[in-house]
Amino acid sequence: MGEGDLKLLAMLGAWGGWQILPVTLVLSSLVFAVVGSTLLALGKIERTALVPFGPYLAAAGWLALLYTPAWAVV
C-alpha cells in the first residue's frame, strides 16, 4: 500500500469511524485477489506488474459507509 492508500483509509476512518476499517480492508483485499488472479490467469498482466489498490479500497470503503448500521458506529 502506498501513501495515498493510507490517506484514503484514514479519510474513510474519519468519515465512518474506525469500526468500518476492518470491513473495508478485508473486502477490498478479497476483491483485489479475485480480480488480480483472474487477470493473471487470462494473461492480461504479468506477475511483476504494479496494480493500483486505491480503486478497490475506495469501492469497499464506499460500500462499508453505505451498509454499516448506524448503531455499529458509536
Results as ranks from 00 to 15, higher is better:
Leu6Cys: 07
Leu6Thr: 01
Leu6Gln: 03
Leu6Val: 10
Lys7Glu: 12
Leu8Met: 13
Leu8Tyr: 07
Leu8Gln: 05
Leu8Glu: 00
Leu9Trp: 03
Leu9Lys: 00
Leu9Tyr: 09
Ala10Ile: 01
Ala10Glu: 05
Ala10Leu: 03
Ala10Ser: 04
Met11Tyr: 15
Met11Asp: 13
Leu12Asp: 02
Gly13Trp: 03
Ala14Tyr: 12
Trp15Pro: 00
Trp15Arg: 12
Trp15Asp: 08
Gly16Glu: 06
Gly16Cys: 04
Gly16Pro: 06
Trp18Gly: 09
Trp18Thr: 09
Gln19Ile: 13
Gln19Asp: 11
Ile20Asp: 09
Leu21Arg: 02
Leu21Pro: 01
Pro22Arg: 00
Pro22Lys: 00
Pro22Asp: 07
Pro22Ala: 06
Pro22Asn: 06
Val23His: 08
Val23Gln: 03
Val23Met: 04
Val23Ser: 01
Thr24Asn: 01
Thr24Arg: 00
Thr24Gly: 05
Thr24Val: 14
Thr24Cys: 09
Leu25Cys: 15
Leu25Gly: 06
Val26Glu: 04
Val26Gln: 08
Val26Leu: 14
Val26Phe: 12
Leu27Cys: 14
Leu27Ser: 10
Ser28Lys: 04
Ser28Ala: 15
Ser29Tyr: 06
Leu30Gly: 12
Leu30Cys: 15
Leu30Ile: 11
Leu30Gln: 10
Ala33Trp: 14
Ala33Arg: 03
Ala33Pro: 03
Val34Cys: 12
Val34Asn: 09
Val34Gly: 12
Val34Arg: 11
Val34Ile: 13
Val34Trp: 10
Val35Thr: 12
Gly36Ala: 09
Gly36Ser: 14
Gly36Pro: 03
Gly36Trp: 05
Gly36Val: 05
Gly36Met: 02
Ser37Asp: 02
Ser37Phe: 10
Thr38Ala: 15
Thr38Cys: 13
Leu39Ile: 05
Leu39Ser: 05
Leu40Val: 15
Leu40Gln: 08
Ala41Glu: 08
Ala41Asp: 03
Leu42Lys: 09
Leu42Trp: 09
Gly43His: 09
Lys44Leu: 12
Lys44Gly: 02
Ile45Thr: 13
Ile45Gly: 08
Glu46Trp: 02
Glu46Gly: 15
Arg47Tyr: 09
Arg47Ser: 14
Arg47Met: 05
Arg47Glu: 09
Thr48Asn: 09
Thr48Ser: 14
Leu50Asp: 15
Leu50Lys: 15
Leu50Ile: 04
Pro52Lys: 06
Gly54His: 05
Pro55Phe: 14
Pro55Gln: 15
Tyr56Ile: 01
Tyr56Pro: 01
Tyr56Gln: 03
Tyr56Lys: 03
Leu57Met: 07
Ala58Asn: 06
Ala58Glu: 02
Ala58Gly: 11
Ala58Leu: 12
Ala58Arg: 04
Ala59Val: 09
Ala59Asn: 06
Ala60Glu: 08
Ala60Asn: 05
Gly61Leu: 00
Gly61Lys: 00
Trp62Cys: 10
Trp62Asp: 09
Trp62Ser: 14
Trp62Lys: 06
Leu63Gln: 07
Ala64Cys: 12
Ala64Val: 03
Leu65Gln: 06
Leu66Gln: 13
Leu66Lys: 03
Leu66Cys: 14
Leu66Glu: 14
Tyr67Asp: 02
Tyr67Lys: 06
Tyr67Ser: 10
Thr68Gln: 11
Thr68Ile: 00
Pro69Val: 13
Ala70Ile: 08
Ala70Gly: 08
Ala72Thr: 11
Ala72Leu: 14
Val73Met: 08
